[in-house]
Design a protein around this nucleic acid. Structure first.
Lengths: 243, 243
DNA sequence: CAGTGGTCTAGACCACGCA
DNA sequence: GCGTGGTCTAGACCACTGC
């Protein structure tokens, strides 16, 4: 005993595994599917939503429904050590980065508070889009202290930024912290990722501290929720006593 | 220029902030709201879904829509050090735990692989539900090696388990790892949390290693997606070199 | 038992992708 | 320019909540 939606979802799951064997990626049109299952588009779309929330399928705005490729394993502390391009490649993906926007801004109240500086502080605002196998999965906003890293506007923004910070500026990260929240893609981010406004997403806030304890960079990242599995290992030199 | 759904969402957002001032928690019925906004229930529910995905509101199965309380800040490594009850209290919540199920099981292929042991290994399977201010937010499955922790079935399961592991068994955690994925609540978990099957959730896998490197515990946790902000600090003794 | 949320139907129009 | 997905309407029935 189960609902129409659940039965369609199960049936689609079966079809999807068969499709994957065939190497096909795109699902048939909603009208074809709703006809095949003897239901309306509304009910069919409800089943598709469930699969989408599960991360089994995803949609590109007005293009249709696709089978979700395998997830990237993502260690949130990893940006402090390895570049996106490197760890994506290590896991067998073909990564790509594009520069979406480069702006000179000044800190507003929010940025000043979170970066522990004053309102009006000059910042670079760098937006990049990250792809895995040509699928856009990450919208990245970086806010970087312009006074500490002069001339950053003249370098290539599609490579590893942190490598440049080390090589060209001698910068060393002494600490980083982050926050992660499940939320939805805002309009601009959704458009950039070929997704719909309101699609589920993982939002990261990340701050980098240099050796002085100064926050030289604050990132806001939006990931497609189905693109990553966050993984982390907690390894203490001195064993941890429970409680 | 925006859609009907978006306009209703914005209007609801405004109403919600006013409701919050009044201390009210439950939204008016869908029929009342759809009438007030001059639309159908379908469209109204679409707007509610967006707010739900944002974590602004949530629903309890057949009970209606409620304003989401503040999130718990959750450090995924924290279970190795502090109990749920403690860190929830530290953040001003009134936590509660209930034992949902206690079973003796044996490792199947999946559990054997993930716990690095053999199929048929006897395990305790402990399910608990965690509440914040009477709201159920977490469904917790713990699989614990019964051969290493004999007699665990006779202790109170609603307190800190790890404290007991330390005090009664002298157990020390030397390492832990975890994985986190955005997915949906399965049927049983959804029912236990008063949620709907298919509601967005955060799933954690966590493993604890003792000093021998043996995995004595494997946890599967389902959190309501809007109940937590995952936070973590990455603090190296020796500074990290970018790239 | 009244009212609610969960589910479902059978249409419609429009903007956009794609060929 | 056809077909698609995105959006929206105006109903309906049922199971359950809460009184």
């Amino acid at each position: 005993m189960s609902t129409q939606t659940q039965r369609i979802k199960s049936a689609l799951l079966k079809e999807i595994s068969e499709l994957q064997i065939d190497g096909s990626q795109k699902l048939p049109s909603e009208r074809h599917l709703s006809e095949r299952f003897g239901t309306t588009r509304v009910t069919l779309r409800e089943a598709l939503r469930l699969l989408e929330a599960d991360g089994i399928i995803y949609r590109e705005n007005r293009r249709g429904w696709f089978i979700t490729p395998p997830r990237l394993h993502y260690d949130p502390s990893v940006h402090a050590r390895i570049s996106f391009m490197n760890y994506a490649q290590q896991q067998g993906f073909i990564p790509k980065s594009t520069l979406y926007q480069f702006k000179h801004i000044v800190a507003d109240e929010f940025l000043a508070a979170v970066m522990n500086t004053v309102v009006g502080k000059p910042l670079y605002h760098i937006c990049r889009i990250r792809y895995l196998d040509e699928r856009p999965v990450l919208f990245e906003n970086m806010m970087i202290r312009a006074d500490l890293l002069k001339g950053l506007d003249n370098v290539d923004m599609t490579g590893s930024l942190h490598q440049k910070l080390r090589d060209d500026y001698g910068l060393i990260i002494s600490r980083a912290d982050f926050e992660m929240t499940v939320t939805t893609l805002p309009k601009e981010e959704a458009t950039a990722l070929n997704a719909l406004e309101g699609a589920a997403a993982l939002k990261f806030h990340r701050r980098y501290f240099n050796e002085d304890g100064t926050i030289f960079e604050f990132d806001i990242e939006f990931w497609r929720h189905d693109a990553i599995t966050v993984a982390y290992e907690y390894n203490n030199n001195q064993p941890v006593r429970p409680f």
